[in-house]
């Protein structure tokens, strides 16, 4: 499987604090790759650096051979990277429909945009029902559906999700993950970051454990769950690497 996203020696620092140090990671076309790790492991920094929300201190990130670092923030979606940040970030005062339309900001094929829009409204009747309401009034689960649909409105090659299950009831988390696997079935590559390790492991082709700004362990779900180091890598290494 050829790599869509190729990350080499990616380093991110905030002042004197290093959030990520020389990360190597590759995501193949059509894969679901999960990054799991405890709070403060550097998971969000990874996605934010790929998308251009935070600057990288070093390294390279290429999407299909194109260097993504040092591009202005608004260019990453034009190269095919859509991101759903932590905390969902609906545009709360804009209507559901306006949020979805903004997802297609970069597109000029207006007829196809309309068809995609109708498709999402069909798939999520609650969004159709509430399309004229401010998105801030939706429930957490509905907002999560909305922001994923909004991200997909750009027809991305790579969808990045930061903690999509955060703060949602288990049943809703199930729906969100169904949506993620359906999205992959449509040919979109997915990079998902989760603190909720079990859920992410269940859908991912490959999972990386991030802790203290470095990848400690990688593998498939079976490889990791059979690995005695897994628990240690996930929970145990913080104190020793934070120095």
């Amino acid at each position: 499987m050829s790599a869509l996203l190729e990350i080499r020696k990616l380093t991110v620092s905030y002042g004197r604090i290093t959030a990520l140090s020389e990360i190597d990671l590759s995501v193949g076309v059509g894969e679901i790759v999960a990054i799991i790790g405890p709070n403060g492991a550097g998971k969000s920094s990874l996605l934010n650096a790929i998308a251009g929300v935070v600057p990288a201190a070093g390294g390279s990130v290429t999407l299909d051979g194109t260097e993504m670092l040092r591009l202005p923030l608004e260019e990453s979606v034009r190269h095919g990277i859509a991101m759903v940040p932590e905390g969902r970030h609906v545009l709360p005062g804009l209507t559901v429909l306006e949020n979805l339309r903004l997802g297609a900001t970069i597109r000029t094929d207006l007829a196809a945009v309309k068809a995609d829009l109708e498709g999402f409204l069909d798939a999520f009747p609650i969004l159709r029902e509430r399309r004229g309401e401010p998105a801030g009034r939706l429930s957490g689960g509905e907002q999560q559906m909305l922001v994923i649909a909004r991200a997909l409105m750009s027809r991305p090659r790579l969808l990045m999700l930061d903690e999509p299950s955060l703060g949602l009831a288990p049943r809703i988390v199930g729906q969100v993950y169904d949506m993620i696997t359906q999205t992959r079935a449509r040919g979109v590559t997915i990079l998902v970051v989760e603190q909720n390790a079990r859920r992410a492991l269940s859908v991912a082709d490959k999972t990386h454990v991030l802790n203290g700004g470095a990848i400690r362990l990688s593998g498939t779900a079976e490889e990791l769950s059979g690995n005695p180091q897994f628990e240690a890598a996930y929970f145990g290494l913080r104190a020793s690497v934070d120095e």
């Binding site: 859509a82 545009l91 709360p92 005062g93 804009l94 903004l102 997802g103 900001t105």
Partner: peptide, 21 residues
């Protein structure tokens, strides 16, 4: 107008959606 209202609500998120700052 839509892009301006979006930017007013959440500038970073709007840029992630491709709105040019």
């Amino acid at each position: 107008g839509l892009e301006m209202r979006a930017a007013a609500e959440d500038f970073t998120m709007s840029r992630l959606l491709g709105v040019r700052a």
